[in-house]
Write a protein that binds this DNA or RNA. Structure first.
Length: 522
DNA sequence: AAAAAAC
């Protein structure tokens, strides 16, 4: 594992699929926009096409051809390939001129010397990825607008908001100034490690609510009844503990009056009514209330980042970030990850799935790297783990019924490659970054509320995105039982993304070998 | 009829 592989989330191959209009100041305006456009003062919808590929029906602006930016050059030097024909939609409110000022280098962003060193020497980055080039100038300069940004897995979102937090911190002020909220402990810790690495040459202080110090004691360990006052400048954590620290659960509470920037990672999940919506809104309200009571508190900048936004959540974001926020969306046609090949395995009976795992997939997984098998429930994870372990298959499982120590141990073993096969609930569906994961198995297609019938394309997208990282190839096997709703659910999901999901006969060894060869894996 | 996250 390379030096940053264990900590860096979505950075290095960020540029692989990141959308970017690729314009520079010297470029002519993108289609649908002109300098005299009222968009300079009013919300405007800008659709730009970069590269020569897709949807060429609409007029692609001349001079926005991609592949000439420094970020791409830097990327190619890392042996990564740029996807052609990327397309991006940006709905920009306020100063639409700023859309032209994409940062070609990190120096363009006015970062401190220490932070630049962290990026170059610490993270081994050479230039901003597309989403970084596009959003960081907006985030880091007055009026410090709110941002909603959608970018593929691996487009560099983590660097984007981590850098934003670090850059906005005033090192002379010893109080919390930046806060990042993540849906799981594992993701909070992963992001925390990225932040530490990036900040290593600075004197910026930080704390993670999910560190062993707080999260090591099993359930409820995040609830700290009393402690020293928290003076760290960057705070990263999970919603429950943070809410507790901010409101009455901790003495003294986490002081949020001086917060300048609030980041929601996996923002669509954090704002989804079925997930953390209430918690997130309560945290925001608590912060704003405290700021309102304090005199001279700095305004709060809110950043929302995710690879996916359902229409409902997309609509809702304006309630959180207001109507003046800058928004960067991926069009539906570009949502899927083309580096990951997707397959469907139709099994006559539910029980056949275990055999498919044992006889077809595991032998390949052993050769190809690591494999994550997603199941719907905690008992299912436990059960499948037992069944496989009893037959001598070395695997582990992770789910919310385990203690934090168990979870940490399982993650550690998987990260260092001691274990190759991980059975997981949706706790691992998002953000988890292990570069050697080449196979993802959906033991059943994901459904909303686990109801078995409402397709959950967002979760599907995040799950399969656990493979194919760092510019590597990936494959996803979807196991469905014949004549069940699973077939329809998967059909709806593949229809949603408009990507081919090829059938592999459940009882044919050669077929599995064959498709993986075709996926560039075998 | 789930999972995650405060208790």
């Amino acid at each position: 594992m390379s030096s940053w592989a264990d900590a860096a989330d979505e950075e290095p191959h960020a540029q692989v699929v990141a959308p970017d209009p690729g314009f520079k100041e010297s470029d002519p305006p993108p289609p649908g926009f002109s300098a005299s456009d009222e968009g300079a003062h009013n919300p405007s919808l800008i659709e730009a096409q970069a590269g020569s590929g897709s949807g060429s029906g609409s007029a692609a602006g001349a001079g926005v051809e991609d592949g000439v930016d420094k970020p791409d050059i830097a990327l190619k030097s890392e042996g990564l390939q740029e996807e052609e024909g990327e397309e991006v939609q940006a709905e920009v409110r306020g100063d639409a001129e700023s859309i032209y000022k994409a940062a070609e280098t990190f120096e363009d962003l006015g970062l401190s010397k220490e932070l630049l060193e962290g990026l170059y020497s610490g993270m081994k980055f050479q230039a901003p990825s597309k989403i970084q080039a596009r959003t960081l100038p907006l985030i880091l300069s007055p009026p410090y607008s709110n941002i909603v940004a959608q970018g593929h897995n691996g487009s560099g979102k983590t660097t984007c908001f981590t850098l934003s937090m670090l850059s906005r911190v005033d090192v002379g002020e010893n109080c919390p100034q930046a806060l990042c909220i993540c849906p799981t402990r594992e993701l909070a810790m992963q992001n925390y490690k990225v932040m530490l690495k990036m900040a290593q040459y600075t004197s910026i202080t930080s704390k993670c609510t999910a560190s062993e110090e707080y999260g090591g004691g099993g359930r409820g360990a995040g609830v700290e009844k009393a402690g020293a006052s928290i003076n760290e400048q960057v705070i990263i954590g999970t919603p429950g503990t943070l809410k507790n620290w901010i409101t009455s659960g901790r003495k003294p509470p986490l002081d949020v009056t001086n917060l300048k920037i609030l980041v929601f990672d996996e923002a669509d999940q954090m704002l989804d009514a079925n997930n953390f919506k209430d918690m997130s809104l309560r945290i925001i309200k608590a912060i704003e209330d405290k700021k309102n009571k304090a005199k001279g508190a700095p305004p709060l900048q809110i950043l929302l980042f995710s690879a996916t936004f359902s229409d409902v959540v997309k609509e809702f974001t304006s309630r959180v970030v207001g109507n003046d926020a800058h928004r960067i969306w991926l069009p539906a046609s570009k949502l899927s990850l083309d580096v990951i090949k997707q397959y469907r395995v139709v099994c006559p009976r539910e029980e056949d799935k275990v055999d498919v795992l044992k006889e077809r997939i595991f032998p390949l997984a052993e050769r190809l790297g690591q494999c994550i098998i997603f199941v719907r429930t905690r008992p299912a994870a436990r059960h499948l783990h037992n069944e496989l372990a009893n037959e001598g298959h070395k695997c582990t499982s992770i789910h919310g019924d385990q203690s934090f120590q168990e979870r940490d141990q399982v993650v550690k073993e998987f990260r260092d490659g001691t274990t190759k096969i991980l059975i997981a609930t949706n706790v691992m569906a998002r953000g988890f970054d292990v570069s050697t994961v080449t196979l993802v198995v959906n033991y059943e297609p994901p459904t909303v509320n686990g109801d078995g019938q409402t397709p959950d394309p967002e979760t599907y997208m995040h799950r399969i995105g656990r493979s194919g990282r760092f510019g590597r190839k990936g494959a996803a096997f979807n196991l469905v039982t014949e004549h069940t709703k699973q077939v329809d659910v998967l059909g709806a999901i593949s229809g949603h993304f408009q990507r081919e999901v090829k059938d592999v006969p459940f009882d044919d060894d050669d077929a599995f070998e064959e498709v993986l060869k075709e996926a560039g894996l075998a």
